[in-house]
Amino acid sequence: MYRARQPVFNNVPRLPLALALSFVAVFVAQSLFPQLTLLFYNVGAIVPALGFGQGDRILGGWSPYIFHVFLHGGLMHLVFNSMATLTFGAGTFRPFGSGIRGGTGFLLFFFFCSIAGAALQIAVAPDLRVPVIGASTGLSGILAAAGWADGGYRGMLRFALPWGAFNLLLALMGEFSPIPISWAGHLGGLIAGALTYPFFVAVFGSRRL
C-alpha cells in the first residue's frame, strides 16, 4: 500500500499545479474581459433544466460536462477550489507516478468524476435553470482518492464520509440551506471517486494502493 505522507504544498506535482493555474487563468480572463462571460457560460455552465443533452452549445452538448470545472462564481470559490486542487490533488496524483501515462490517468479520473457529478446534478434537479459551475464535482472525487492514497479503504472513508454527510445535510435542508452549493454534483463526484480510483491507479499508475 502506498501511503502519501507529504506536508501540505510540499513539492506539489506539476499537473495538479497546472490544473489549479488553469482555473485562475480562466477567472482572470473573465474578470479582465467580461464580454467573454456569455461565451464561457455557453461552453461550460451546466443548466440542469436543459437535460442531459444540455441544449445547443457552441462546442456541442457534451462541453458543459467537461468545461464547467474551469468556471467559478467568485474569488472565494476560486481560491477554495484551487487550494483543494493543490492539496488533495497532489496526494491523488502521486500513485499515478510521473510521465504521460500517469498524467493521462490523473486527468481522466478527474474529469470522470466531474462528469459523474454533473450528471447527478442534472438528474436530481431537472427544473433548475440556474447555471452550475465550479471544479468541486471533480474535486469531490479527488478528495475520496486522496483518502485512498493516504490510507487505503479506511483512509478513503475518513476523507469521504464527512464531506458526504455535509452534502447530505444540505440536501435535507433543501431551500432552507444557507449555502447555495451543488450538493448533488459533489455527491456524484465523491461517489465516482470513491468507487473508481483504485481502478484508475491499477490501469495507469506506477504504484499499488
Results as ranks from 00 to 15, higher is better:
R3D: 10
R5S: 07
P7Y: 15
N10D: 05
V12S: 08
P16F: 07
P16M: 09
A18F: 03
L19F: 03
L19A: 11
L19N: 12
A20R: 08
S22Y: 14
S22V: 07
V24F: 09
F27D: 10
V28C: 12
F33Y: 10
P34H: 11
Q35W: 01
Q35N: 11
Y41T: 09
Y41A: 04
Y41Q: 12
N42R: 15
V43R: 15
A45R: 06
L50N: 11
G51Q: 02
G55N: 02
R57A: 07
R57I: 05
I58Y: 12
L59C: 10
G60M: 02
S63A: 06
G73Y: 10
G74F: 15
L75R: 15
L75S: 10
M76C: 11
H77T: 01
L78V: 11
V79C: 04
F80E: 14
F80V: 08
M83V: 13
G89I: 11
F93W: 11
F93P: 00
P95D: 00
F96R: 03
G97F: 00
S98L: 05
I100P: 12
I100W: 14
R101I: 01
G102N: 04
G102T: 01
G102R: 01
G103M: 02
G103W: 13
G103C: 00
T104V: 04
G105P: 00
F106C: 02
F106I: 02
L107K: 02
F110K: 02
F111H: 05
F112P: 12
C113V: 04
C113H: 12
I115D: 07
A116Y: 10
A119Q: 08
A123W: 04
A123C: 01
V124I: 11
V124K: 05
P126G: 01
P126D: 05
L128D: 13
R129C: 14
P131I: 00
P131T: 01
V132Q: 06
G134H: 09
A135H: 02
G138A: 04
L139S: 10
S140V: 04
I142W: 03
L143M: 14
L143S: 13
A144P: 07
A144K: 13
A145V: 05
A145I: 09
A145G: 12
G147H: 06
G147D: 13
W148D: 14
A149M: 12
A149Y: 01
L157S: 13
R158S: 03
R158I: 08
A160W: 08
L161M: 10
A165I: 04
A165E: 10
L170N: 06
L170T: 03
L170Q: 12
A171F: 15
L172G: 09
G174A: 01
G174L: 14
S177P: 14
S177L: 05
I181M: 06
G185R: 01
L190V: 07
G193E: 03
A194E: 04
A194V: 02
L195A: 08
T196Q: 05
T196I: 05
Y197C: 07
V201M: 09
V201F: 14
A202D: 07
A202T: 15
V203T: 07
G205S: 04
R207K: 04
R207T: 00
R207S: 00
R208N: 15
R208Q: 12
R208C: 01
L209Y: 00
